[in-house]
Design a protein around this nucleic acid. Structure first.
Lengths: 216, 216
DNA sequence: CGATTAAACAGGGAAAACCCTTTTTTAAAA
DNA sequence: TTTTAAAAAAGGGTTTTCCCTGTTTAATCG
């Protein structure tokens, strides 16, 4: 309730319709206002280097040219005082962990209610961090730190393989789709089974679901 | 807001601590009051046959002696005017469908908030039915009526097999646990694959998860 | 009781999955 | 350009899964 200057926010999102409406929403809050929005990380860099310095950045992840991961990393290294809040539709644990490792102060899912956004921003300023309920849940469910390391170390091909292995395709078919030898696929499989300490493909499906790597 | 007589409710639940607190809660509502509670369907029958006739019955499912399914069936056949509301922790589609087939007017999950209960009871009287949000979702997700028929027709052994097949056990191990021949298990498998039109065990896991037959 | 029906079980074979190890290829570093 | 390391591929074998069909067993019923 103290009368003070509004906190300055920047929005980074390639979906400009979303960004504009978000801007309107935030400007309606009493404690926050939007300074500018950028279509991707590169545009954000330009703005910042031209002297437009926000306190908070709402950062989308899936963007062309320079995505959320790169952007968050650049921010962490070059402007550590800016509080970055990831704002995405992705709720899989891998994406969440990756962003947290890039130094974001919070992770918001895009389906949050308007009032929650206000609350989230306030908490971010007060406590220094804020996560969506679902995100906190996901992070809490991850009681096995080893698994997190494994998850973060997954190569792109391994990830693709896991997702495809959660379908009814045979490994042969997966190999065809990924344009790799069945023997290579078998290598991925074997490797993952060892790392994840699982006995068969069912274990892989369960893992993928627990980590939200696939949806039902 | 019209001043009228409270609607008379009976609670059927073997967990008497839960039943008692539920009674207190309901008695605090302006439009409803609890007439009695019974530990199982048999006790309910006795009460009703002694002239205690509620308008609404909150019916638990897992109870000794006479469970929710039997009780709902008996109520449907003998007292069709009583509105029965299933009140359970089970959120799998099979249980839900089974209860609906026994004529219950609604399905509430036990983790609902107190205010929702009041609203649920009111809706039940006004519209004649009410389902928990999660339940409605589950029923909505089931866009394949054929699958529902299959689900309802599942034998106990088939169900057990499905659940075990969602673990990392081999069919041989499942056969041991269920004390059946591996060939019998293979029969279940083959049968289910045909009925559910799936190609392999992954399909079975996905099915079980979609229907909430297993939890992660 | 024989007849019917469903559940349990079996024979037998092909295809996938699983597993260990080694080699080739590729790309980056020294 | 040689070294090194990681990714891809392969050799080769065992186990499990998958699938078709047919038989025995058990329970129910006219």
């Amino acid at each position: 309730m103290t009368k003070r200057k509004k906190h300055i926010i920047a929005i980074v999102d390639d979906h400009s319709l979303f960004a504009s409406s978000l801007e309107k929403l935030i400007n309606s809050f009493s404690n926050f206002s939007v300074l500018f929005h950028a279509k991707n990380g590169l545009e954000l860099q330009e703005r910042i280097e031209n002297g437009f310095l926000p306190e908070i950045i709402l950062l989308d992840i899936n963007m062309p040219i320079m995505d959320g991961f790169e952007t968050a990393e650049w921010l962490m290294l070059n402007h550590p005082k800016i509080k970055t809040l990831a704002l995405s539709m992705e709720d899989d644990e891998l994406t969440i962990l990756r962003m947290l490792r890039k130094g974001v102060k919070g992770y918001l899912l895009k389906d949050i209610h308007p009032e929650i956004l206000n609350h989230a921003l306030q908490e971010l300023m007060d406590k220094g961090y804020y996560h969506s309920e679902k995100v906190s849940e996901t992070l809490l469910n991850s009681l096995n730190p080893d698994e997190d390391v494994i998850l973060l170390d997954l190569k792109e091909n391994e990830l693709t393989f896991i997702k495809l292995a959660c379908s009814e395709m045979t490994y042969k078919e997966i190999a065809d789709i990924m344009d790799l030898s069945p023997k290579t696929i078998d290598g991925y499989r074997q490797d993952l089974f060892r790392k994840l300490k699982i006995k068969n493909r069912v274990g892989l499906v369960i893992f993928a679901l627990k980590k939200n790597l696939i949806k039902l």
